[in-house]
Design a protein around this nucleic acid. Structure first.
Lengths: 214, 214, 214, 214
DNA sequence: TCTTAATCGAGACGGTACGTCGTGTCTTTCC
DNA sequence: GGAAAGACACGACGTACCGTCTCGATTAAGA
């Protein structure tokens, strides 16, 4: 998924059905996957500890026990690395991960466990710098926003099938409202995510918009 | 309003009616107010053209036709200046500025004229850097978010008085939903503000939440 | 003399006789001459201690108590700085500095005091790197070689006037022989300069070539 | 001759007539002698083209069509390789190579053909770096200086036997003067070697010092 | 009018991160 | 085990930006 950003130095992969392709592996020492992990881990720690500006590429390299060239061989820029570090740390979110509780409200209330607060702060720092690297911005948006919205849409559809949600609703819009309010609250008033806030949003916004009118 | 940030350099001003105060003005050349404007203007241009990171204090000074010291005499930090530049460019928004069209929907639809798109892009860059300067973050939040939410709340109240809005609604929450969705759309999918988006949000979210059920 | 290398930052100087020229001093803070000295001194120490390759620009800056930019503002390159450091450390040599002992041999024997061994070692390191910077190479050659040869030529002329040296001799060539042999001995056999070597060269080469045949 | 520097990697070679020796050859592929030549050639070209500092080990390997490891398996250091490249390019000089013309002047005038100018420029670059590797410095000195001085001494002795050269002269010193002046001229004034320079040195320095006084 | 004090433009300065590149070593795959 | 390819640790280089300081010139107030 992050292949566009994270140049893995390998030849273009054969399609899976090209069975007889003998995998023409180039010679030469291969990139050590463990370094990737160490670097990303170090970057992530520093990002959370100090924020984007105060994180240093030298520090990343040192903490990862790696030379600077090894870092730059994989990520061309501090921004690239930071984005990867953030998005890797935030696990991809899929519909399967959300248990089907049988009611839309029940489903939605399971969400808090999926959110990683500290990371998001740091991620916000990246919105600006990433603007000049569209591919990067895209990756950031994917993990930070679109993934979640997609999952929420899935839950709404599930509930619609179940008959809980009215058939004429703009699910795309409704799915975006929750994350939007929560993000906005944090960005502009420092209001941290809390179960109370979540509940208020669910009962005050999402359900009223989605559910059948009594 | 920005007095805390914008060091005036002058002794605290006496109230106008304190006639007997002998105006203890220090000697020396007075600050040239025109410079303030030139600097803010230059900063604002660069912010919009290039974004926060790529804006340089040397560039600001040069474009303003001013020495760097003159900039730093007024704003202690690049972040301070940038925030001032952004918030100055975004005029304060008050309820009085919104014409009373007689209906909530009508009121809400007058909003587009009040939004200055380009500025907001740059403002997002400041969320990160501003985090370590709470006073600054606060100013940013004020102009970029709270002002608007307050106005919206005012409109909702007006409509509630009128009987359009149900008396039991969480107006604080509803007032925040609109800006939140629009900001989120821009930050995470580059979706620019448009009248269509606004209409979709008004008709799909704000009015359904606010209005009396039929 | 080093003006071409050491960018003064000052406007072209008026000729001395342009009395009424008001010296149009550019505005702005002037370069601190003390920094020049500190940097050159630091560079020279490190050059002698460690040699050219092991001398670091960061170290120079640190030891001089100066930022790296301050160094690079004056010398564009490590090579430029090193050459300046070497040539500054080797004081310019002029004919006046050599006492007139009354005999050519006497004059020549006063030379040892004028030679600074350690510096020359380091200077040799610069011959290679300086080759791509002709102006630089020139400065190096001036102090390391031409100055000396010029002084020796002066001594020979003095002796020629006195009648010690035959009138038909190729003084340019004879003046170069001494330094050449001594440099060659050091470069290619590590033979350090010593009064004995000097005496051997004077009595075995210079005087036989210069003096009148008995 | 360069065996100390050029690690053969092979067991000490058996004399050719040791037929019964079962050749205890270690297992594994043998080193390809052609690579040695290719590497040295590449190094030499780059040395002449760009000088020591600008020559890169990666470049050498690439131009030689060889892996970097293959280079380092043979020469432990860039300096080692460079010295080998220079000294190999400058053929060993022996007395036998100089035709006996019957006169000292005639012998000396045959020298130009033996000098390879371009190489020497690069060789100068090595004087500095080689200083910390005494064995290396020694090899450099051998080829660049001692070989020549030895040959010149031989010529002088030949002439002394012939009665051309006075019996009381310091031949060691006289033999060194010529190379010294020529090297000095090149190193410090960029004066290239030329037959004219050689003639001037021979007639102005070497012969006057060596020959019997009329 | 002279003194004093602050502002101004220009630009030097200390510090520090960035991204690049070179050396010498190590790893992988093939021969 | 040699060889080509190329990853790796280390560490220097030269550039750029931030926020501070210095210089001489200018501009008020107060004596």
């Amino acid at each position: 998924m992050e292949d566009e950003l994270h140049d893995d130095g390998a030849a273009v992969r054969e399609p899976l059905d090209a069975v007889e392709a003998p995998e023409p592996r180039r010679p030469g020492r291969r990139r050590d996957a463990a370094k990737d992990a160490a670097i990303v881990a170090a970057a992530h720690q520093l990002l959370v500890e100090r924020g984007f500006d105060a994180m240093t590429m030298d520090d990343v390299a040192e903490r990862a026990g790696v030379g600077k060239a090894t870092v730059y061989r994989r990520w061309t820029t501090k921004v690239h690395l930071a984005v990867e570090a953030m998005t890797t740390a935030i696990p991809a979110l899929t519909l399967d991960a959300v248990p089907d509780t049988g009611s839309l409200r029940g489903d939605l209330m399971t969400i808090p466990a999926l959110i990683h607060r500290a990371r998001e702060d740091a991620a916000t720092d990246l919105l600006g710098p990433a603007r000049d690297h569209p591919e990067i911005a895209d990756q950031l948006h994917q993990r930070l926003a679109r993934d979640r919205v997609t999952v929420l849409r899935g839950l709404l559809e599930r509930a619609q099938v179940r008959g809980e949600v009215a058939p004429d609703r703009d699910l795309d819009l409704i799915a975006v409202v929750g994350p939007a309010v929560i993000f906005y609250a944090k960005a502009f008033s420092g209001e941290v995510f809390s179960p109370e806030l979540l509940e208020r949003v669910i009962d005050g916004v999402v359900l009223p918009l989605a559910l059948l009118r009594p």
